[in-house]
């Protein structure tokens, strides 16, 4: 019994770590620009596809991952520059559609560049399962959880310790005031897209050996990331991370004990319950509307 529970927890934490990275990406962009970037999932896809195809053509793995992150960052900045920045005064719905358009566009380009079939990426350190109290864990899961932890700490340090990070935080609190004290708000938006893209691409690369890489891999991962971000309270970074882990674990437990067919519904049922009873997410602050 316990082995089974542990098995579910382990797979939940693994996938939860990816949701956490995606959720964090949503939060960073939301803070800087108040945009929900529905193309976040595509950054994950770019990371996964780049790593799989580049290693297959002989590029060493670390370099392939870095190239994937770099590519995703460039794409992120382009999306920010050519769409979001130009439509800053558009309504929420319009912005949502712009980012959805961007994600369709990126998927189309990816299909053209990489093809539509599944790509396989070798696990970073073999596939011999590690036995923990009767549950088996893939070594790759450790990579996923480890990388996510390192990235999350790094992002935290960036926001709290560096000048650019602080400027970004300031912008999220009060855009106008930030502008008045000389912060380049446009640059903040661009950096936020680049950061989120890098996070997503990194997540895509480490999770690829578990899920395979394919051009549609970002769709569900992106939506779950959005769920994680809302669960933690939009714009709340640590909240998004916690939200991601909660969604991942709940999903795995739901699949194991309730019904594997309803696995994907678990995240959305949780988010609905939370929104109905705590409209600003688990850790969000209650806001007031300005007239």
């Amino acid at each position: 019994m316990f082995a089974e529970f542990l098995q579910y927890m382990l797979s939940g934490l693994t996938i939860g770590a990816i949701y956490a990275l995606a959720g964090l990406g949503f939060s960073i962009i939301y803070n800087a620009s108040h945009v929900i970037n529905f193309a976040q999932g595509e950054f994950i896809m770019i990371g996964g596809m780049a790593a799989a195809t580049l290693t297959a053509s002989g590029v060493p793995l670390p370099l392939a991952i870095l190239m994937g992150c770099g590519g995703a960052m460039i794409v992120g900045v382009l999306v920010a520059k050519f769409t979001v920045e130009r439509a800053r005064n558009a309504s929420v719905v319009t912005l949502i559609i712009i980012t959805i358009g961007a994600s369709i566009f990126l998927r189309g380009v990816a299909e053209l560049v990489w093809g539509k079939d599944f790509k396989r990426l070798e696990a970073f350190s073999g596939e011999t399962p590690i036995n923990i109290l009767g549950a088996s864990m893939q070594p790759q899961s450790l990579w996923v959880i480890g990388c996510a932890a390192v990235l999350i700490v790094a992002i935290g340090t960036f926001f709290n310790r560096t000048l650019t990070g602080k400027a970004m935080l300031a912008t999220s609190h009060n855009r106008l005031a930030a502008q008045l004290v000389g912060i380049n708000v446009k640059r903040v938006v661009l950096i936020s897209f680049a950061l989120s893209a890098a996070l997503g691409a990194m997540g895509g690369a480490v999770v690829a050996p578990i899920t395979f890489s394919y051009t549609e891999m970002g769709i569900m991962l992106g939506l779950k990331g959005f769920t994680a971000a809302v669960l933690g309270g939009l714009g709340n970074g640590p909240g998004a991370v916690a939200g991601g882990l909660i969604v991942g674990v709940a999903e795995a437990l739901g699949a194991g004990y309730i019904s594997s067919a309803y696995k994907d519904a678990v995240a959305f049922v949780i988010i609905l319950l939370v929104l109905l009873f705590m409209p600003s997410g688990l850790f969000g602050k209650r806001g007031t509307e300005r007239v």
């Binding site: 579910y8 578990i210 899920t211 395979f212 891999m217 699949a255 594997s260 067919a261 696995k263």
Partner: peptide
Amino acid sequence: ETYGAKDTDVTAQLT
């Protein structure tokens, strides 16, 4: 047991 065509993780069923 059953799984979905687009599932990327079937460990729950296999467990």
